[in-house]
Design a protein around this nucleic acid. Structure first.
Lengths: 252, 252
DNA sequence: GATCATAGTCGTCTGCCTGACGATAAACAC
DNA sequence: GTGTTTATCGTCAGGCAGACGACTATGATC
């Protein structure tokens, strides 16, 4: 195995982002419209080249900020001031995934609360939150009746992997709180789980479970009545990152 | 975000391998001695450049074959004929991780049964199975009394991530069987778990658990007495890849 | 050959967690 | 007030895991 750095094959390295949020009870991903070939006019994941002096995580955080205005918070820092969770997802390097040249893309997964409206260069028509169902389904129709063409490149696969990662990770970590604003109710957290997993959960058992898991939730003392009905306690995310025992999603 | 493929920054892309096995009740990783600067003479992970027409998984499988003679089996194929489990681990791209140039390394994790003896270009002194404890510990001593210098590059971090992935993945998947030969006993499987997790498990509860989990183990009908004591039933890995319920490792 | 050591396998018991679901509480709409 | 909605507390039965006793089948040792 000769290791000759002067004769390395030429690669381009990019980061692509699967930015997930929960809107109107549905798990949505950020999609941007491609302005140039290949796949011109098609929806794709936000992303771009890694700069020569940039770490992969830095590049992903920069792209996230450019596309959404969110700032990724360090996983070590529990504070979550309008910051999204950001983690590396996987790397995609099929030689033919980009018809122009050899591009290796390091995909990242971001989980964000609902608040931000998409913006990409100020052009509202070139970025949108698309329900992941719609992005992954065999040619469904978009919200505007617009035919949903498949995502560009191998981005459908990347979205699929990102969604599966998110679905599995909220089982054994407290990451579901990344979809919630700083303060939230148990009901709002439950609706996050329901949207991400696509199932209905028993509100009573869910309440018992999350309030009984040490370090998951910290009551702030306040209450709210955002959803109608009896006012609910407000909570913040606790310090725990790993849930023990985990929140297993119902089978079948 | 302009996307100009003709002006991409120059990157080299490599694959590095964390090849894990269980030898003498210890979790070991394959290490090779570097023959050239930087880090000449230091231990490192096996790996090499991704070739221009190669997928990342192909490159990893090729390197695995070159270093160990193992052939990675497709995850879809349940047969495991002297093949190791191979999966992508994570990608490391710190601008300064290689002093010579910008190298992005897509690390892969391989889990193999004990059988193979290390070989790297026929030089027995340039490859070895090192207990991961030794590779990660604060400068311990190797088996020969040789001072264990830290691994080259960021390979200690990669090994650490790979070990953690393996530890966590045998909890909820049947991957522990990848450390075993085609036919194995419940006791051998238990010793795998004990070595990977570094804990002692109750033989009776372990037996009940693994034989009771549907799809995990398939009895072959044979028995063996490899370990002394009463002969044990032989099993093969069952078709299930995800264990339900999982084998949670004891806390603390 | 009797005894011992070693490993494997089957049971039992208890506590904890979960899913199913009844009941109560506190808001809003009419 | 009545009905609706959401939140929260309680109860109960079943399942699973940890602790551990008991028995089995081999090789080693006396």
């Amino acid at each position: 195995m000769p290791y000759d750095p002067s004769a390395f094959p030429p690669f381009a390295v990019t980061v692509d982002l699967v930015v997930l949020t929960v809107r109107r009870h549905a798990l949505c991903a950020l999609a941007v419209r491609r302005g140039e070939p290949p796949f011109q006019g098609r929806w794709a994941l936000p992303g771009g080249f890694v700069r020569p002096d940039e770490d992969l995580a830095q590049a992903a955080a920069r792209e996230l900020g450019e596309e959404t205005g969110l700032c990724a918070h360090d996983p070590a820092a529990p504070a979550q001031a309008n910051g999204a969770h950001l983690e590396q997802l996987a790397t995609y390097g099929d030689p033919k995934r980009d018809p122009r040249m050899r591009v290796v893309s390091v995909a990242h997964l971001a989980l964000a609360p609902d608040l931000p409206a998409p913006r990409a260069g100020g052009d509202a028509n070139s970025a949108r939150w698309a329900p992941v169902e719609e992005l992954l389904q065999r040619g469904g129709y978009g919200r505007d009746g617009e035919q949903a063409a498949p995502l560009a490149f191998d981005h459908a696969q990347i979205v699929s992997d990102g969604v599966e990662r998110a679905r599995s990770k909220i089982e054994y970590s407290s990451l579901a709180t990344a979809f919630c604003p700083t303060e939230f109710t148990v009901g709002e957290l439950r609706r996050v789980y329901e949207a991400v997993w696509g199932v209905a959960l028993d509100p009573r058992n869910f309440h018992r479970k999350v309030t009984g898991t040490p370090g998951f939730l910290v009551p702030t003392g306040g209450t709210t009545t955002r959803q109608g009905g009896r006012p609910a306690q407000l909570f913040r995310a606790g310090g725990a990152t790993l849930l023990n025992p985990p929140m297993l999603r119902p089978e079948v």
